[in-house]
Computed example of a mutant assay.
Amino acid sequence: MRVGTFGFVPARLQEARAARRIKTQKQLAELLQVASSSVSRWEKGEIAPDADALSALAHVLGVRREYFLRPAFESDRPMFHRQLTSTSVQDLRYQSAQMNWLQEISSTLQHYVDFPEVDIPDVLGGASWRQLREDDIESIALELRRYWGVGEGPCGDIVPLLERIGIIVGTIEMGTSRLDGLCSWSSSEVRPHILLATDKMSFPRRQMDGAHELAHAVLHKNVSAEDFEENLKEIEDQAFRLASAFLMPSTTYPYEVNSLSLSSFLYLKERWRVSIKAQIRRLTDLEMIPKDHATNLYKLYSAKGWNRGEPLDQEWAITPPRALKDALNLIVSSGVRTKKDLLSLEFTMSAADIENLSSLPSGWFLQREGEIVQLRTSDSRSPSRLGSTGEVLQFPRR
């Protein structure tokens, strides 16, 4: 009689299936060539897979066997995502699973390196997010700029700022344009993590996505999962308003708007590096553009085909996050751990998953680690042939 594997964690199987976009238990069962009822009972915790089945699961799902024996790295804080009506449950589960993996990588690396301390001021002062008015959010945006020394002009690249204030940032291809980003506070580290999409990405879009998730980290740290589900629209509106106010502060940006036209917004895009669409929304929120005029601008915007891509979108390079990548390079280069050790002892997901989430080049774990070598001195230049002492020569007097 075969005995199930002791210590098997059912939640890890659910997580891995979501991370691999295997939609149903039946699909996984077909890949494993087992009955779908077996997969169902494994995920429910009614039975555990035996040693052979566990090895098959690890192979099909691209993880180590030990992956299923470690506790799921889940946070009791909600994961803030833009839950559009067109977003599938499978996509959201995939995103959540990848966020769990990002937090697991971060937690593991912090055994060896110190990431910057979280430097996010308490802008609510003990108040609830429910009490925030639009004017409050505008003031918070200016307060954050002053606190982080951003000034009141164009923000610059948002990703280095996020990492400077202690936020762990990962990037991954979401496989759909309907998912832009995700933010979650880690319970164990008490640190926000942000996961950004790389799909069809442009610098202005990355700016808004990063600022939007930053807004969640600032305003909604103490929001419960139940509150998020029940008040999704209000919470998302607050995050977008703060992101827009942070990237386009009310004290400077509006005064550079010379006309309420797409050509004017295109000119401002080159300086402020935010999308034309975001500018229309910002000026509408500030009541500088009447709603009927905003509607006409959106129609013209769509007629130009800019929903598929705006002018200047590819003008600026996108900076990948550095914190996780630098940490892994430091750990290996200092000899604390080898790449093989990291994969076989520390991490349980695949090398490709770690490289992807940490912005490492593909195949980094396969590259040989550098060795310290000395140049060999040829026989003709050896110390024994040159002599052990030198002769001091004086320059002739003029």
Rank of each mutant, 00 (worst) to 15 (best):
Tyr298Glu: 11
Ser38Lys: 11
Thr176Val: 09
Leu375Tyr: 10
His111Phe: 03
Arg398Glu: 11
Tyr267Cys: 06
Ser275Gly: 14
Phe73Met: 11
Trp148Tyr: 07
Arg130Asn: 05
Arg93Gln: 14
Ala323Ile: 07
Lys23Gln: 14
Glu104Gln: 05
Gln33Gly: 05
Asp91Phe: 00
Ile318Cys: 04
Val89Met: 14
Ala141Asp: 03
Ala317Leu: 09
Ala29His: 07
Glu355Leu: 03
Glu369Lys: 12
Asp326Leu: 13
Arg308Ile: 04
Lys299Gly: 00
Leu343His: 03
Val150Asp: 05
Arg282Leu: 07
Leu266Ser: 12
Gly7Tyr: 07
Gln394Ile: 13
Asp326Ala: 12
Ala72Glu: 12
Glu189Asn: 05
Ala141Asn: 07
Glu143Leu: 13
Ser275Ala: 10
Tyr67His: 15
Leu69Gln: 05
Ala215Cys: 07
Pro321His: 04
Ala303Asn: 15
Ser358Gly: 04
Gln279Cys: 10
Pro71Val: 04
Leu286Phe: 10
Asp157Pro: 02
Ser302Glu: 12
Glu229Ala: 09
Pro321Gln: 11
Asp180Met: 01
Gly175Phe: 03
Gln367Ile: 08
Ser263Lys: 09
Tyr112Ile: 00
Ile194Asp: 04
Val274Gly: 00
Asn356Pro: 00
Met288Asn: 09
Gln238Pro: 02
Trp148Ser: 03
Arg376Lys: 13
Thr5Val: 15
Lys339Cys: 00
Leu262Arg: 09
Ala58Pro: 03
Leu328Ile: 15
Ser88Asn: 02
Leu124Asp: 02
Val392Trp: 15
Leu92Met: 13
Asp379Gly: 01
Pro249Ser: 11
Val336His: 04
Pro320His: 15
Thr319Cys: 04
Gly363Arg: 06
Ile235Leu: 15
Gly149Trp: 06
Val257Thr: 13
Thr348His: 05
Ala53His: 05
Trp129Lys: 02
Asp50Lys: 09
Gly363Trp: 07
Gly370Val: 15
Ala294Thr: 11
Arg65Asn: 13
Ala127Arg: 15
Pro192Lys: 06
Leu161Trp: 05
Leu195Val: 05
Ser40Ile: 02
Phe73Asp: 03
Ser40Leu: 10
Gly390Cys: 10
Arg17Glu: 06
Ser177Lys: 13
Leu312Tyr: 14
Ile318Leu: 12
Glu213Ile: 05
Ser139Leu: 09
Thr24Ser: 15
Tyr267Gln: 12
Pro10Val: 11
Asp52Lys: 13
Leu57Phe: 09
Thr319Ala: 04
Val63Trp: 06
Ser202Asn: 06
Ser40Pro: 03
Glu43Lys: 08
Ser186His: 06
Glu315His: 11
Leu345Gly: 00
Glu15Ala: 15
Leu345Thr: 09
Ser380Ile: 15
Asp119Lys: 12
Phe265Arg: 11
Pro78Gly: 09
Ser86Ala: 13
Gly210Trp: 05
Arg93Ile: 01
Asp209Ile: 08
His193Arg: 01
Ile167Glu: 00
Asp50Val: 07
Asp135Asn: 12
